[in-house]
Amino acid sequence: MWELVARSLEASTIFLFAALGELIDQRSGVLNVGLEGLMLFGGTAAFITAQTTGSHALGFLAGLTLGGLLGLGHGFFSITLRGDQVVSGMGLWILSFGLTTYLGSPYTGPLGLGRIPSLWGLSPFFPLGVALVAITWLLLFRTGLGLAIRSAGENPAAAEASGIPVTSIRFLCVALGGMLAGLSGATYTLSYNPVWNYNFLMGWGFVSLALVFFSMWNPWILLAGASLFGIMWQLSLSPELILPGVLSRYVWRTVPFAITIPILCIISTPWFRTRWGLAKPEALGRPYAKG
């Protein structure tokens, strides 16, 4: 049982890292729907680097770097060029989906390195994730930089008039968000499931994106949501632990996705939006032109 819980919590960290990055992005007003692409690229880069160098640390570094770079690419398109953020995000995703399939295919198979040591069977990434949630919360709600980030996402014109460099703040956030997405991908390929396969994520990134909307842009609620989905995901992989012999295992695989849709609907109802929806950054997805 503990093994299942530990495994679920490790799965949650993958949702958590990526969604936390996206949360920071969105708090500054930038929407990145290509989150899954950043994770794919980060994970693949981490896997290839770790396998060639034999070092987990270098692998994670590669994942972080590539995620950050792709995040900056999204920033260039959506912040500097004020392009459509959905076009750029979708572009990043399909780009990553296509290129990682090609670049990673010679490496298909297990990583072949030792497992990353665990603490009582629990992956060290879970406590790291909790720490990152606390840090993100502190950053957003208890520092001047956080106030600047939130203001850039709510009303960039007001922030600029207060002397906040909105463009730089947003670039900082997309870089941070990209790095976290890269970390998420790397955690998947180096620790959670160290076997490379094409399109290994199969929708984790999009679930993470949905989690950000569920979280009402609050890191602590995000932690709860990610944990819940981690458990659900793990159960959908091994339903026989709870309900042996009921339904095909394939049907269970649909559950996390199927549950996401009604939750998305609930948070989109006028009833929910007028009560809780004020948390949505007002300038989310809207390019900002100075002056």
């Binding site: 392009g83 750029s88 780009l95 989906f97 296509g98 399939t101 090609y102 670049l103 094409y198």
Partner: peptide, 16 residues
């Protein structure tokens, strides 16, 4: 494996 996938990615990149 995946030359056709890579092309997909490259087309997307040049489209953007």
């Amino acid at each position: 494996f995946g030359v056709d996938y890579a092309l997909l990615g490259l087309l997307m990149m040049t489209f953007v």
